[in-house]
Amino acid sequence: MTYQSRYAWSVLFRLFHWAFALSIVTLVVTGLYVNSPWTNTVLEGSRSFPMATMRYLHFLAGFIFASAVAVRLYLWLFGNRQEKFWDSAPITPRNIRNLFSTMAYYTYLTDRHETRLGHNALAGTVYLATIVLTLIQLVSGFYMLYPESVFWQKWGVALFETQQQARFIHHLLMWYFIIFAFFHLYIVIWNDIKSPEGLISSIFCGRKFHRSSS
């Protein structure tokens, strides 16, 4: 058995990943504060603006998050082979077969699994759902950030009707992202232990150890 070091993830893809990951962490921390500010300045004239600062950081991270999503959508169409939409989305017979075999592999029903340089189809499916939810999160976020903009009002009213509903959905989806991040970390570590292809380091250096068939 020989392993070959192969280039899997482009620089832009890795930048997307880290912008996405770090912005989510920032958004969750500041978002929880904005929803339920656990400090109380009390002192007047203290020249501290915790709520304004947290909101500023939240919006800043929101724009990084939005840019990261735009990059991911671009890479779905114009990225390298592993990054393209049809390489991992459950829309081709190859991926649908892989979706079920990955589920069997993850539930310990079999040790056999297709070695892929890119995502497996289960990951591809979850990432597809995540990007859809991300878009909903962005629309609700921009609707709240620009309440007076006609453009965002049209989208916001069509999807959520009121600001309060948008806020509620925005908050619920935050929990999706927390749970997604948890499972993502768990699965990545599990895979890294199960099949030694250097999955974790690939998101830093872009290279994976791919098992050659010979």
């Binding site: 915790p50 709520m51 009213v157």
Partner: peptide, 28 residues
């Protein structure tokens, strides 16, 4: 978008509130 005259319903209460400074400075 939901049929309200903009002159009266074009802005959020929060953005015109007299207590807004307390919000930004975190006094609740």
């Amino acid at each position: 978008q939901i049929g309200r005259p903009l002159f009266a319903y074009g802005r959020k209460n929060h953005d015109q509130c007299e207590r807004r400074a307390h919000f930004d400075e975190g006094r609740f």
